[in-house]
Protein backbone atom coordinates (compact mmCIF):
# COMPACT_ATOMS: atom_id res chain seq x y z
CA UNK A 1 0.00 0.00 0.00
CA UNK A 2 2.80 2.45 0.87
CA UNK A 3 4.41 1.86 -2.53
CA UNK A 4 1.10 2.54 -4.27
CA UNK A 5 0.68 5.65 -2.10
CA UNK A 6 4.15 6.91 -2.90
CA UNK A 7 3.70 6.11 -6.60
CA UNK A 8 0.63 8.37 -6.58
CA UNK A 9 2.78 11.08 -5.04
CA UNK A 10 5.52 10.56 -7.64
CA UNK A 11 2.88 10.49 -10.38
CA UNK A 12 1.77 13.96 -9.31
CA UNK A 13 5.22 15.32 -10.21
CA UNK A 14 5.06 13.88 -13.71
CA UNK A 15 1.42 15.00 -13.99
CA UNK A 16 2.40 18.53 -12.98
CA UNK A 17 4.99 18.85 -15.76
CA UNK A 18 2.60 17.23 -18.21
CA UNK A 19 -0.22 19.55 -17.17
CA UNK A 20 1.79 22.72 -17.78
CA UNK A 21 2.94 21.42 -21.16
CA UNK A 22 -0.37 19.90 -22.26
CA UNK A 23 -2.44 22.96 -21.35
CA UNK A 24 -0.10 25.17 -23.41
CA UNK A 25 -0.19 22.69 -26.28
CA UNK A 26 -3.95 22.31 -26.35
CA UNK A 27 -4.68 26.00 -25.77
CA UNK A 28 -2.71 26.93 -28.86
CA UNK A 29 -4.25 24.13 -30.91
CA UNK A 30 -7.75 25.10 -29.85
CA UNK A 31 -7.31 28.66 -31.08
CA UNK A 32 -5.10 28.10 -34.16
CA UNK A 33 -5.92 24.54 -35.31
CA UNK A 34 -2.19 23.82 -35.76
CA UNK A 35 -0.83 20.61 -34.21
CA UNK A 36 2.60 21.96 -33.30
CA UNK A 37 5.08 19.06 -33.26
CA UNK A 38 7.95 21.48 -32.57
CA UNK A 39 6.46 22.02 -29.11
CA UNK A 40 8.85 19.58 -27.40
CA UNK A 41 11.86 21.22 -29.00
CA UNK A 42 10.72 24.65 -27.86
CA UNK A 43 10.58 23.17 -24.37
CA UNK A 44 14.21 22.16 -24.78
CA UNK A 45 15.16 25.59 -26.12
CA UNK A 46 13.55 27.14 -23.04
CA UNK A 47 15.49 24.80 -20.77
CA UNK A 48 18.71 25.87 -22.48
CA UNK A 49 17.73 29.53 -22.04
CA UNK A 50 17.30 28.87 -18.32
CA UNK A 51 20.60 27.00 -18.26
CA UNK A 52 22.48 29.91 -19.81
CA UNK A 53 20.73 32.33 -17.45
CA UNK A 54 22.03 30.37 -14.46
CA UNK A 55 25.47 30.24 -16.06
CA UNK A 56 25.27 34.02 -16.19
CA UNK A 57 24.61 34.12 -12.47
CA UNK A 58 20.81 34.37 -12.42
CA UNK A 59 18.99 32.66 -9.55
CA UNK A 60 16.82 29.69 -10.48
CA UNK A 61 13.51 31.57 -10.32
CA UNK A 62 14.83 34.21 -12.70
CA UNK A 63 16.17 31.49 -14.97
CA UNK A 64 12.68 29.94 -15.03
CA UNK A 65 11.26 33.32 -16.07
CA UNK A 66 13.92 33.59 -18.78
CA UNK A 67 13.07 30.09 -19.98
CA UNK A 68 9.36 30.87 -20.12
CA UNK A 69 9.98 34.09 -22.03
CA UNK A 70 12.28 32.28 -24.44
CA UNK A 71 9.53 29.73 -25.07
CA UNK A 72 7.01 32.52 -25.67
CA UNK A 73 9.25 34.46 -28.05
CA UNK A 74 10.26 31.36 -30.00
CA UNK A 75 6.63 30.22 -30.34
CA UNK A 76 5.46 33.61 -31.59
CA UNK A 77 8.35 33.84 -34.05
CA UNK A 78 7.75 30.32 -35.31
CA UNK A 79 4.11 31.16 -35.94
CA UNK A 80 4.72 34.57 -37.46
CA UNK A 81 7.53 33.59 -39.82
CA UNK A 82 6.81 29.93 -40.59
CA UNK A 83 3.39 28.55 -39.73
CA UNK A 84 1.24 31.55 -40.66
CA UNK A 85 3.10 31.80 -43.99
CA UNK A 86 1.96 28.29 -44.86
CA UNK A 87 -1.51 28.83 -43.37
CA UNK A 88 -2.03 31.91 -45.54
CA UNK A 89 -1.25 29.78 -48.60
CA UNK A 90 -3.98 27.36 -47.69
CA UNK A 91 -1.99 24.56 -46.02
CA UNK A 92 -4.50 22.22 -44.36
CA UNK A 93 -4.18 20.17 -41.19
CA UNK A 94 -1.96 17.37 -42.53
CA UNK A 95 0.30 19.72 -44.48
CA UNK A 96 0.70 21.88 -41.38
CA UNK A 97 1.62 18.82 -39.34
CA UNK A 98 4.44 18.14 -41.79
CA UNK A 99 5.53 21.78 -41.57
CA UNK A 100 5.65 21.59 -37.77
CA UNK A 101 7.56 18.31 -38.01
CA UNK A 102 10.08 20.06 -40.23
CA UNK A 103 10.29 22.94 -37.79
CA UNK A 104 10.88 20.43 -35.00
CA UNK A 105 13.84 18.91 -36.84
CA UNK A 106 15.27 22.33 -37.67
CA UNK A 107 14.97 23.58 -34.08
CA UNK A 108 16.43 20.39 -32.57
CA UNK A 109 19.32 20.08 -35.00
CA UNK A 110 19.92 23.81 -34.82
CA UNK A 111 20.28 23.52 -31.05
CA UNK A 112 22.66 20.57 -31.46
CA UNK A 113 24.75 22.61 -33.90
CA UNK A 114 24.85 25.62 -31.58
CA UNK A 115 24.92 24.07 -28.09
CA UNK A 116 26.54 20.74 -28.98
CA UNK A 117 25.36 17.23 -28.08
CA UNK A 118 26.53 17.41 -24.45
CA UNK A 119 24.35 16.90 -21.39
CA UNK A 120 23.86 19.97 -19.21
CA UNK A 121 22.04 20.51 -15.95
CA UNK A 122 20.38 23.27 -13.99
CA UNK A 123 21.94 23.93 -10.59
CA UNK A 124 19.49 22.64 -8.00
CA UNK A 125 19.81 21.96 -4.31
CA UNK A 126 18.38 18.46 -4.61
CA UNK A 127 20.14 17.31 -1.45
CA UNK A 128 17.31 18.25 0.93
CA UNK A 129 14.31 15.95 0.75
CA UNK A 130 10.83 16.24 2.25
CA UNK A 131 8.58 13.40 3.35
CA UNK A 132 5.00 14.07 2.25
CA UNK A 133 2.82 11.12 3.26
CA UNK A 134 4.44 7.96 1.96
CA UNK A 135 6.46 9.78 -0.71
CA UNK A 136 9.80 11.59 -0.56
CA UNK A 137 10.22 14.75 -2.65
CA UNK A 138 13.04 17.18 -3.31
CA UNK A 139 12.58 20.93 -3.06
CA UNK A 140 12.58 21.44 -6.85
CA UNK A 141 9.91 18.73 -7.22
CA UNK A 142 7.62 20.43 -4.73
CA UNK A 143 8.29 23.69 -6.55
CA UNK A 144 7.21 22.04 -9.81
CA UNK A 145 3.88 21.02 -8.25
CA UNK A 146 3.37 24.54 -6.88
CA UNK A 147 4.25 26.06 -10.27
CA UNK A 148 1.78 23.76 -11.99
CA UNK A 149 -0.99 24.69 -9.57
CA UNK A 150 -0.24 28.38 -10.04
CA UNK A 151 -0.13 28.03 -13.81
CA UNK A 152 -3.41 26.13 -13.89
CA UNK A 153 -5.07 28.71 -11.64
CA UNK A 154 -3.70 31.46 -13.86
CA UNK A 155 -5.00 29.82 -17.04
CA UNK A 156 -8.37 29.25 -15.40
CA UNK A 157 -8.61 32.90 -14.31
CA UNK A 158 -7.54 34.14 -17.72
CA UNK A 159 -10.07 32.01 -19.59
CA UNK A 160 -12.93 32.64 -17.20
CA UNK A 161 -12.55 36.20 -16.01
CA UNK A 162 -10.77 38.25 -18.69
CA UNK A 163 -11.93 39.56 -22.06
CA UNK A 164 -8.89 37.99 -23.69
CA UNK A 165 -9.78 34.61 -22.24
CA UNK A 166 -13.36 34.89 -23.38
CA UNK A 167 -12.17 35.91 -26.84
CA UNK A 168 -9.83 32.92 -26.95
CA UNK A 169 -12.63 30.57 -26.02
CA UNK A 170 -14.88 32.14 -28.61
CA UNK A 171 -12.20 31.88 -31.31
CA UNK A 172 -11.49 28.28 -30.34
CA UNK A 173 -15.16 27.34 -30.57
CA UNK A 174 -16.01 29.16 -33.80
CA UNK A 175 -13.39 31.46 -35.34
CA UNK A 176 -15.66 32.65 -38.17
CA UNK A 177 -18.40 33.66 -35.79
CA UNK A 178 -15.86 35.35 -33.51
CA UNK A 179 -14.48 37.33 -36.45
CA UNK A 180 -17.94 38.35 -37.63
CA UNK A 181 -18.69 39.56 -34.10
CA UNK A 182 -15.83 42.04 -34.48
CA UNK A 183 -13.13 40.22 -32.57
CA UNK A 184 -9.53 40.80 -33.74
CA UNK A 185 -8.86 37.09 -34.20
CA UNK A 186 -5.31 37.61 -35.51
CA UNK A 187 -4.33 39.35 -32.28
CA UNK A 188 -6.09 36.65 -30.32
CA UNK A 189 -4.10 34.01 -32.21
CA UNK A 190 -0.87 35.89 -31.42
CA UNK A 191 -1.89 35.99 -27.77
CA UNK A 192 -2.58 32.26 -27.86
CA UNK A 193 0.90 31.53 -29.25
CA UNK A 194 2.42 33.80 -26.62
CA UNK A 195 0.55 32.16 -23.76
CA UNK A 196 1.19 28.68 -25.13
CA UNK A 197 4.87 29.51 -25.50
CA UNK A 198 5.06 30.79 -21.91
CA UNK A 199 3.60 27.52 -20.63
CA UNK A 200 5.80 25.53 -23.01
CA UNK A 201 8.89 27.31 -21.72
CA UNK A 202 7.86 26.82 -18.10
CA UNK A 203 7.26 23.12 -18.77
CA UNK A 204 10.70 22.86 -20.37
CA UNK A 205 12.37 24.34 -17.31
CA UNK A 206 10.31 22.08 -15.00
CA UNK A 207 11.27 19.02 -17.03
CA UNK A 208 14.95 19.98 -16.94
CA UNK A 209 14.75 20.44 -13.16
CA UNK A 210 13.09 17.07 -12.71
CA UNK A 211 15.42 15.11 -15.01
CA UNK A 212 18.60 16.56 -13.46
CA UNK A 213 20.34 16.55 -16.86
CA UNK A 214 19.12 17.23 -20.33
CA UNK A 215 20.30 17.50 -23.89
CA UNK A 216 18.95 18.85 -27.16
CA UNK A 217 16.66 15.86 -27.74
CA UNK A 218 15.06 15.81 -24.29
CA UNK A 219 11.90 17.82 -25.00
CA UNK A 220 11.16 15.91 -28.19
CA UNK A 221 11.09 12.66 -26.22
CA UNK A 222 8.55 14.17 -23.82
CA UNK A 223 6.20 15.36 -26.59
CA UNK A 224 4.33 12.05 -26.98
CA UNK A 225 2.90 11.97 -23.44
CA UNK A 226 2.10 15.68 -23.77
CA UNK A 227 0.02 15.01 -26.89
CA UNK A 228 -1.51 11.95 -25.23
CA UNK A 229 -2.63 14.06 -22.26
CA UNK A 230 -4.06 16.72 -24.58
CA UNK A 231 -5.92 14.16 -26.72
CA UNK A 232 -7.17 12.25 -23.70
CA UNK A 233 -8.66 15.40 -22.22
CA UNK A 234 -10.19 16.47 -25.53
CA UNK A 235 -7.85 18.31 -27.87
CA UNK A 236 -8.31 22.07 -27.63
CA UNK A 237 -9.70 21.84 -24.10
CA UNK A 238 -7.40 23.31 -21.42
CA UNK A 239 -9.39 21.76 -18.59
CA UNK A 240 -9.39 18.45 -20.40
CA UNK A 241 -5.60 18.68 -20.76
CA UNK A 242 -5.26 19.17 -17.00
CA UNK A 243 -7.37 16.07 -16.43
CA UNK A 244 -5.53 14.13 -19.15
CA UNK A 245 -2.16 15.04 -17.63
CA UNK A 246 -3.32 13.80 -14.25
CA UNK A 247 -4.50 10.48 -15.70
CA UNK A 248 -1.37 9.91 -17.80
CA UNK A 249 1.01 11.03 -15.03
CA UNK A 250 -0.59 8.84 -12.39
CA UNK A 251 -1.09 5.88 -14.73
CA UNK A 252 2.57 5.73 -15.74
CA UNK A 253 3.75 5.69 -12.13
CA UNK A 254 1.06 3.57 -10.46
CA UNK A 255 1.14 0.94 -13.23
CA UNK A 256 4.71 0.12 -12.23
CA UNK A 257 3.40 -1.37 -8.99
CA UNK A 258 1.46 -3.96 -10.98
CA UNK A 259 3.23 -4.55 -14.29
CA UNK A 260 6.83 -4.44 -15.49
CA UNK A 261 8.22 -0.89 -15.67
CA UNK A 262 9.05 -1.69 -19.25
CA UNK A 263 5.36 -1.22 -20.02
CA UNK A 264 4.68 2.01 -18.11
CA UNK A 265 4.15 4.06 -21.26
CA UNK A 266 2.19 1.22 -22.85
CA UNK A 267 -0.25 1.28 -19.94
CA UNK A 268 -0.78 5.02 -20.29
CA UNK A 269 -1.51 4.65 -23.98
CA UNK A 270 -3.77 1.65 -23.39
CA UNK A 271 -5.84 3.89 -21.12
CA UNK A 272 -5.85 6.55 -23.82
CA UNK A 273 -7.13 4.06 -26.40
CA UNK A 274 -9.79 2.64 -24.10
CA UNK A 275 -11.07 6.12 -23.23
CA UNK A 276 -11.12 7.15 -26.87
CA UNK A 277 -13.06 3.99 -27.75
CA UNK A 278 -15.91 5.16 -25.54
CA UNK A 279 -15.40 8.92 -25.91
CA UNK A 280 -13.67 9.54 -29.25
CA UNK A 281 -13.79 13.27 -28.63
CA UNK A 282 -11.83 12.94 -25.37
CA UNK A 283 -12.96 13.39 -21.80
CA UNK A 284 -14.08 16.99 -22.33
CA UNK A 285 -15.48 17.26 -25.76
CA UNK A 286 -16.87 20.37 -27.35
CA UNK A 287 -13.82 21.82 -29.12
CA UNK A 288 -12.52 18.43 -30.21
CA UNK A 289 -15.84 17.76 -31.89
CA UNK A 290 -15.68 21.10 -33.65
CA UNK A 291 -12.12 20.49 -34.86
CA UNK A 292 -12.96 16.98 -36.11
CA UNK A 293 -9.72 15.68 -34.68
CA UNK A 294 -10.94 12.89 -32.52
CA UNK A 295 -13.75 11.68 -34.71
Amino acid sequence: MSIVGSSIGFGLITASILAIAAVGFTLQFGVTNILNLAYGDIMTAAAFAAYFATKGGAPLWLAAVAGSLAGAVLSVLLNRFVYSWFARRGAKLFAMIMVTLGASLVVQNGMTAVFGPDFVSLPTSAGTTYQVGPAIFTGPQLAIVALALLAMAGVHSLLRYTRLGQAMRATATNPDLARSCGMATNRIIDAAWLLSGLLCGLAGVALALNLSTFTTGTGGTFLIPVIAAAVLGGIGQPYGAMLGALVIGLATEVSVTVVSPSYKTVVAFAILIVVLLFRPQGILSEVAMAKEIAT
Binding site: S6, S7, F10, L211, P261, S262
Partner: peptide
Protein backbone atom coordinates in the same frame (compact mmCIF):
# COMPACT_ATOMS: atom_id res chain seq x y z
CA UNK B 1 14.96 -7.18 -11.87
CA UNK B 2 13.81 -4.02 -13.64
CA UNK B 3 13.56 -3.69 -17.40
CA UNK B 4 13.03 0.04 -17.55
CA UNK B 5 11.43 2.06 -20.33
CA UNK B 6 14.03 4.52 -21.61
CA UNK B 7 14.02 8.30 -21.21
CA UNK B 8 11.09 8.59 -18.82
CA UNK B 9 10.47 11.69 -16.72
CA UNK B 10 10.74 9.65 -13.53
CA UNK B 11 11.67 6.21 -12.15
CA UNK B 12 10.81 6.88 -8.53
CA UNK B 13 8.26 4.12 -8.13
CA UNK B 14 10.63 1.56 -9.62
CA UNK B 15 13.37 2.77 -7.28
CA UNK B 16 11.08 2.65 -4.25
CA UNK B 17 10.28 -0.97 -5.09
CA UNK B 18 13.94 -1.76 -5.57
CA UNK B 19 15.02 -0.11 -2.32
CA UNK B 20 12.36 -2.05 -0.41
Amino acid sequence: SLNVALDQASYRTEIQQMLA
